[in-house]
Write a protein that binds this DNA or RNA. Structure first.
Lengths: 211, 211
DNA sequence: GTCTATAATTGGATAGAC
DNA sequence: GTCTATCCAATTATAGAC
C-alpha cells in the first residue's frame, strides 16, 4: 500500500503501526509545528521505535507534508448552499457567514493555518494546497450563488468574484488575528455574531437592486 | 546603556558592536525566522564572535523578542487622515485603502507577520504587540474618521468600530493569503487597485445616508 | 569586551541483530 | 518489520586567555 493510500484511510480504525505513526505524527506536528516536533517524540507517541517510523516513511519532511495536506482536506468542507435557493438571500448569507466564521475560527483550523504560514518558506506547496482546498473553493461557490441571485433579480452584484472576497474578508475581519494571538473578544467588545449580522446587512445594502 | 535604549536608536548610524549585532540579528531573524536562525549565523553576519553576542544580549530568546518588537514599531506608521477632512469621503477612503494595501502586502510586513504567527506559541506577547501597534490603531483611527463623517451628515455609519473592521477586512480579503503563499495575482485575475476601488464604492453604497 | 575553543544537548537518520 | 544502540551534524551557551 502506498503512503498516500495509508493516509487516505487514516481516519479509519486501522490499528497497524503505520496508522499509529500517522496518528501520532498528526498530534505532534499539530501541537508543536514542524521545527519543534521531533521524530523521537512522534515515535514515542506512536509507541514504536524511531527506526520503525523510518521503515514506513521516508523522513520528517515527507511525513510532515503528508499530514498537513491531509489536514487541509479534512477541513475543506464547504457549507452547502444548495437548498438555500428557497431561503431569502439574507437567511442564506447569515447561515453561510456563521458557518464560515465557525470554520476559520476553530482552534484546529487556526493551528493548521499557523503551521502552514510558518512553514511556507520550507514547504511552498502547502500554502497553495491550503489556499486551493479552502478559500478558493469557498469564494467560487459564493460567487456562483451571488450570480444566481443577480440573475433572479434579487440582488445587483456585477462582480461576483470580488463581492465574494469582500464578504469573507469582512466576516473574518481582524477576528482571526485576535484568535490567532489569543486576544479575547471581551477585550474588544464585539462578538462573532455581531460581526456576521452587521456584515450581512451591510452587504445586502451595498448590493441591493438599484433603481 | 540598556538594551532597550540601544535598540531604540538602532536605525541610527551607530557603528558599535552592539548595533552591528542588532542589525545582523534583524537580517537573520527576518530571513530565517526564529527556529532556523542560529546565533552562529548572527555572529558571523555581524562580524563578531559568538561570545561577543552573548556579552551584549542575554540569549537568543531575548534578542529575538527585542528585534520583533522593534520591527512592529517600525511598520506601525498610520497613513494620515488629518488633512483629508477637506477631501471627499471617496477620495479619503481610496487613499486610505491604497496605503493600507501597500502596507500589509509589503514583503517585509508579510515576513514579519509570518514570523510572529509562527512563534505565537513560544512568544505569546509578540502577537499582542503586533496587533496593538498595527490593526488596533488603524481601526481606531478609521472608526474616528467615520464617526466624524457621520456627524457631518456625509455618511450614516451607526457602528463605526465594526465598519472600520469591515473596511480593512474587505481590502485585505484573500490578497494577503495569496501573497503569503506566493500565489500570483495573475492567476486570480484581480488586481489590488480593483479590489480597493470596488470595496470603497461598495462601502460608500452601504453606508450612504438613508432616506 | 573580545576572541578561540569547547562543553553539553538535541535531533535526524541508520547499522545490525532478530 | 521491529528493536537497541549509535553516528553525525548542528546549535545554544560558556570557560578561560588576552
Amino acid at each position: 500500500m502506498t503512503q498516500a493510500a495509508v493516509i487516505a484511510r487514516s481516519e479509519a480504525q486501522e490499528s497497524g503501526k503505520a496508522a499509529k505513526i500517522l496518528d501520532a505524527a498528526r498530534r505532534v506536528f499539530m501541537a508543536d509545528g514542524y521545527g519543534a516536533a521531533s521524530m523521537d517524540a512522534i515515535a514515542k507517541a506512536a509507541g514504536v521505535s524511531k527506526a520503525t517510523v523510518y521503515a514506513h516513511f521516508a523522513g520528517k519532511d515527507q511525513l510532515f507534508a503528508a499530514i498537513i495536506a491531509e489536514r487541509c482536506r479534512a477541513h475543506s468542507a464547504i457549507p452547502e448552499l444548495e437548498d438555500v435557493e428557497r431561503a431569502t438571500p439574507e437567511e442564506a448569507l447569515l447561515a453561510l457567514g456563521r458557518s464560515f466564521a465557525s470554520l476559520v475560527l476553530a482552534p484546529e483550523v487556526l493551528d493548521l493555518y499557523r503551521i502552514v504560514v510558518a512553514e511556507t518558506p520550507r514547504f511552498p506547496e502547502l500554502g497553495r494546497t491550503l489556499y486551493e482546498t479552502g478559500p478558493k473553493r469557498g469564494i467560487a461557490r459564493l460567487a456562483d450563488y451571488l450570480q444566481r441571485l443577480t440573475d433572479r433579480g434579487l440582488l445587483d452584484v456585477r462582480e461576483p468574484d470580488i463581492a465574494a472576497r469582500q464578504f469573507f474578508g469582512m466576516i473574518r475581519s481582524d477576528l482571526y488575528l485576535r484568535r490567532l494571538f489569543h486576544i479575547s473578544d471581551a477585550e474588544v467588545g464585539i462578538t462573532v455574531e455581531q460581526m456576521v449580522a452587521s456584515s450581512v446587512a451591510m452587504f445586502l445594502r451595498a448590493y441591493a437592486r438599484r433603481a
